[in-house]
């Protein structure tokens, strides 16, 4: 157990990390747990519930509130699969890189998607709309190359189809 009578993280400088004001409800939760030993995981649960992941600036806030080190928080976050460090996009695009899809040009589809969305595999677009990832054979080889967006399967893809498909999802957001 650490005992820090001196709260020396509270005043530390975290450069480049935007200060965030946490909701009253979350602050209350932190306050409730603050003095209980072993509180970190219970607090992270609530953060994950609210944000869908643990943003860096919230982690920093917690470090200051609890007077614990960021190293400790990240050690814990990355150990437990429940906690995420990246915000997942609203829609998950999975490009199949199984053999059939690969042979039928999945790479071109993947390149097109990366270019259109301006992100790499494993990343999420700035607007938080899409997360891009690759998967192994999803069992629709007959439709190769294949991608899925959330639960929807798109097959027989050509690079030129991608923009149209993507716009269906962006329109949902921008439309009234």
């Amino acid at each position: 157990m650490e005992d820090n009578n001196l709260n020396y993280i509270e005043n530390a400088i975290f450069e480049g990390v935007e200060d965030i004001k946490l909701s009253e409800e979350l602050m209350e939760h932190i306050e409730k747990w603050k003095d209980k030993p072993g509180n970190l995981i219970m607090i992270l649960h609530r953060v994950q519930q609210i944000f869908g992941y643990i943003p860096l600036n919230v982690a920093v806030k917690i470090a200051k509130e609890l007077n614990i080190h960021l190293a400790k928080i990240y050690g814990v976050i990355t150990f437990y699969h429940f906690f995420k460090t990246e915000k997942p996009g609203r829609h998950k695009i999975s490009i199949c890189m199984g053999t059939a899809c690969y042979l039928k040009g999945a790479e071109k589809i993947s390149d097109e998607l990366q270019e259109l969305l301006g992100i790499e595999i494993g990343q999420t677009t700035k607007d938080g709309l899409f997360t891009l990832e690759t998967v192994r054979c999803i069992g629709c080889c007959g439709l190769a190359p294949v991608m899925t967006i959330d639960d929807e399967v798109y097959g027989n893809l050509k690079p030129e189809d991608i923009a149209g498909i993507i716009s269906k999802y962006t329109n949902i957001k921008t439309g009234v």
Binding site: G38, I41, M42, L44, H45, F79, Y80, H81, F82, F83
Partner: peptide, 10 residues
């Protein structure tokens, strides 16, 4: 007294 503590996927 009893308190509940949650696991987190491990």
């Amino acid at each position: 007294d009893i308190e509940i503590r949650l696991g987190a996927g491990a």
